[in-house]
Nucleic acid binder design. Structure first.
Lengths: 251, 251
DNA sequence: ACGCATTCTCAGGGGATTCACAGGAACGGG
DNA sequence: CCCGTTCCTGTGAATCCCCTGAGAATGCGT
């Protein structure tokens, strides 16, 4: 039914597919309904087939019948703790990669134990761009899905390259150091080349879902990025006054 | 079958159709009746099948039976808030794209997240042209409807091109810089080539619905546009004295 | 605890954009 | 050919949008 890709940004992007040919399947487990909803939408937007559960029991049940290729799992659930859910999950799906969601102040060693198997985690509040990127990384590396995957981790726009695995950025072969936020912003731009992105879109996607600050942080970080990648070169980041920003190869 | 198009403007325009063959269905949800009416008319004018609801409960009910291909949703509703409506809506129609309407000065942080799924939004007061353009974009990208879709983001009239994604405009291959208002005006003209558009129509469509200024802004902006796209070339923007303006390829 | 990196707020400034106004040009009917 | 109407466009002011420096607050590693 979802045969056509529901992605809206980045129409030319290669679509991740599972071996059978259908879209990658992801299970979202979180008891905060709005957050689960937000995540589900963002992941569907990637072209993935998403289901969600609000507690551990539901997660196990859904895992059994849905057989997802990846799981996004909140470690704080009402009925059972993260470790228990993980154990039962692995009973059903031994090799499924898991992305944990955890509060900032959670005990670090617990997480370290959970992610020992090559899984990953992000702390709340997270940005959607970050969750999607981590999940893509997990799926790609797991090898169970991810068939139609080229050199997926490298984004290229003109002579500008960004490696989503190593987080290395270079323009004209010369390496460029970016901070975490700068990197996320540039990744979002580069994943949508030649497309005007409004400041609101950027804010929604790159900043945490609970960010309540001034909207001009976007302008500020665009300014930072330009200093680092557009200095003394044909500029690639362009302003569309009244509309937003876009990145494109100089020409 | 395209000849049976109910559109009144632009007979040659490709008509968006849903997979079954019928017109695209859109649900408008807004408690301000005049505004809902205005929107509905503008969307019917696009050849779409439109229904409207004045509150969240009505929206859910209508979504269930009407099964729209897209939804226009005011985030401020009398009975429930935007996120709640969105949640219930998605319960009925998991993949329907949503265009949010929001007040300019609304609390920004409640918007953040709403648009995460690839949805979009416009701030009040908006122009109808903007709403229609955004909605077309959402429908086109959602893939559920949008069958008769070519290279939709590019408008072409003679040697003049306008890209709705990158906001780039060129005549004879040469790039042209337009301001936001000039861009919207040209888009409206190009979406209705060879058709006379009255100043009133243009004002209603391109300017915000609460614009209270002088009617000759249209003349002024036509003048701006001519300087930029018709300078020293066979003119494409023509005046029909007493009637309005139209754009057509020189010849 | 200390220093450095990073994130973000605030505010000033500059330039682009929008728009009103008004005089002049073009048009069309008589 | 005259005149009223409609349209075009120069000028200028107000506003809006965007850029960026300075510095506070926070986080992070040593």
């Amino acid at each position: 039914m979802l045969s056509a890709s529901p992605r809206s940004l980045g129409p030319m992007r290669t679509q991740m597919l599972r071996p059978g040919g259908g879209p990658v399947r992801v299970l979202v487990v979180d008891d905060e309904a709005p957050l689960a909803e937000l995540l589900s939408m963002a992941l569907r937007y990637e072209g993935w087939d998403v289901r969600s559960a609000g507690d551990g029991a539901g997660a196990i049940r859904c895992a059994r019948e849905f057989r997802p290729d990846a799981v996004v799992l909140d470690v704080m659930l009402p009925d059972m703790d993260g470790l228990a859910v993980l154990g039962r999950l692995r009973g059903e799906l031994p090799d499924v990669p898991v992305l944990f969601l955890t509060a900032k102040d959670a005990v670090e060693d617990r997480i370290a134990g959970l992610t020992a198997g090559g899984d990953d985690y992000v702390t709340k509040p997270f940005s959607l761009e970050e969750v999607v990127a981590r999940l893509r990384g997990l799926i790609r590396r797991s090898g169970t899905a991810a068939v139609a995957v080229r050199d997926e981790s490298l984004l290229v726009v003109g002579d500008l390259t960004l490696d989503e695995d190593s987080h290395e950025v270079a323009r004209g072969g010369e390496g460029i150091h970016l901070t975490a936020t700068e990197f996320e912003l540039l990744r979002f731009l580069m994943r949508n080349p030649r497309r005007v992105l409004s400041k609101a879109q950027i804010l929604d996607r790159v900043w945490s879902y609970d960010f309540g600050g001034q909207a001009n942080v976007v302008e500020l970080y665009i300014s930072y990025l330009r200093r680092k990648i557009d200095v003394g070169r044909p500029p690639m980041i362009h302003t569309r006054r009244g509309a937003g920003y876009l990145i494109k190869p100089g020409g």
